[in-house]
Simulated scan of single mutants.
Amino acid sequence: MLDGRIMGLDIGDKTIGVAVSDIMGITAQGVTTVRRVGKKKDIEELKAIIKERQVNKIVSGLPKNMNGTIGPQGEKVQKFCELLQEETGIAIEFWDERLSTVAAERTLIEGNVRRENRKKVIDMLAAVIILQGYLDLKRNF
């Protein structure tokens, strides 16, 4: 039993997809997509969600190249997460997010979601996929 929720993040240049686990740490639910306006404001918005949802752990997707190395986008995510961790005092774990956006896109297409509507929710759904993968792995250990 957890004593708080886990937040999943899909951090991009323009948006941050946010998901949060249920209190038992079994399922991930999409919360929102944060439009990025600047590191300070982005972190403030995430802190508000953390407080509201009683989050005590964060899992961030870490974009890797297909060969497993970390490229420029992965480095940006790591730097942002360092700042977020300093600001919140909450430990952040990384989850290999390769193909999470592809899986999110496929799910939305299969659900017959129109292209313009997919754009609005794809990052949040990618955050759900990242967090759900993490929760499933933890539960099986």
Rank of each mutant, 00 (worst) to 15 (best):
K79M: 12
R5T: 08
F94T: 10
T88N: 07
E44I: 09
Q73G: 07
F141P: 07
N56K: 09
I50A: 00
L62S: 09
M1Q: 15
N67F: 07
T27S: 13
V113F: 08
M124N: 02
G68F: 01
T15S: 11
T32S: 12
I23E: 11
N56A: 06
L2N: 14
L135M: 08
V55F: 01
E45Q: 14
F80D: 07
V128Q: 07
G25Q: 08
S21K: 00
T32K: 11
G30Y: 04
R139W: 11
W95A: 01
R139Y: 11
G133N: 07
E110C: 14
G30S: 09
K40F: 11
T27I: 13
Q132N: 10
L46R: 06
E52T: 10
Q85D: 08
G61N: 03
V55R: 01
A91F: 12
Q29D: 15
I11V: 10
L9R: 03
A48D: 10
F94L: 03
G30W: 02
G4M: 06
N56G: 05
K41H: 15
M1C: 15
D136M: 14
V55W: 03
G133C: 01
L125I: 07
K39Y: 10
R35F: 14
P63A: 01
I16A: 00
F141D: 14
Q54H: 09
